[in-house]
Design a protein around this nucleic acid. Structure first.
Lengths: 189, 189
DNA sequence: GATTCAAACTAACAATCGTTAGTTTTGTTT
DNA sequence: AAACAAAACTAACGATTGTTAGTTTGAATC
């Protein structure tokens, strides 16, 4: 097993700190103090600060990519696809809320290869999202509003769900999904 | 005038850098290089790095607070108030898109007094928003969905407008407002 | 009891951080 | 031309950064 669990503990602690203060503002000594050890001891388990960041972000990005690819290739209508995307974001957020702060705010601190890889995944994700909306508009299932605004509006809400969810402890996953689908798709008025 | 314009130039340059990389990741030497001077020369115009951050954030937060207070005290319906809030966010974003990255992602690096002041403004803003939605639901003008989700959903879209707007150069302010109102209030389905 | 090994430790490094002090340059006003 | 103020500069400071090297601890295995 070779300290794999200890490594994961460090990554989990780092996820929380990074979301609270941002990658650059968290020092290895901060992280070590949270873990109850000295900064140098962290390096028995991880290779670098950068490795922690890239592990957090790339894993999450791949999770979203995998989920989106399944939705895109499924044989369902555009509106149902949007509902599944909302469901995907709720699931990932409930499972790993701490890491989403890094994904949203610290991805630009990834280094060369991982930065390019991440940006490609994000671009493809948005492109898939956009195409689903376009198809829905063509078929008449989605209102013919400005497509960019519809995509941006929905996506920005889903992306910042992690900021808001921890404050609402007493909410069931399925109820949250249902209400999010109502608000995002059917509007509030 | 005493270099007031030079100070503003520094703040404007810092706004862009802070939004690109975050407050903690931008050094005074980075900022100086962007201005074409040495880091020490910055201190002829500003008192500290922290002063730059607080100037950017507090000014913007006060702008939102002032706008919200006008909307709250105006004698119009709940839906019209929501439309005016959307319009407020579009206006502020178009006027000062660069600073909104700091407001959204670096407010936690404000120091004691300003941090408390900012958090109070943000709390009051959200509370005003929530009360407008509540009133609208009571009057039957707004659908009886989960209020927190409606508030969070709308607000998170408006707050991240600055991330998305710069990519859509050819869009008129009034058209943007109209379409945002459509998508956010009436839904896409 | 000796060996092994993961996981902690102490001590220190080179680099970089925000900032200060004191000086020089530049451009305008007398 | 002299005087002044604005705005740049050089040089350096103490603190902090991520990280490395080498050592000690403690528990499991032989």
């Amino acid at each position: 097993m070779k300290s794999e669990s200890r490594k994961q503990e460090i990554i989990n602690a780092a996820s929380i700190l990074f979301t609270e203060k941002g990658y650059s503002a968290v020092t290895m000594r901060d992280l070590a103090k949270t873990m109850g050890i000295k900064a140098a001891s962290l390096y028995n388990h991880i290779q670098s600060k950068q490795e922690i960041l890239s592990t957090i972000i790339i894993n999450l990005a791949e999770e979203f990519t995998t989920g989106m690819n399944q939705i895109v290739s499924s044989d369902i209508g555009s509106v149902q696809k949007l509902e599944n995307i909302i469901s995907l974001h709720v699931d990932v957020t409930l499972r790993n809320a701490d890491g989403l702060g890094s994904l949203n705010s610290d991805w630009m601190h990834l280094e060369e290869e991982n930065l390019i890889y991440f940006e490609k995944m994000r671009h493809d994700y948005e492109e898939n999202f956009r195409n689903i909306v376009k198809k829905g508009v063509q078929k008449g299932d989605i209102k013919p509003f400005n497509i960019e605004i519809m995509v941006f509006s929905t996506l920005s809400t889903l992306r910042t769900l992690y900021l808001w969810y921890p404050n609402q402890k007493n909410i069931d996953s399925d109820i949250l999904k249902r209400d999010m689908i109502s608000v995002l798709l059917k509007g509030v008025v």
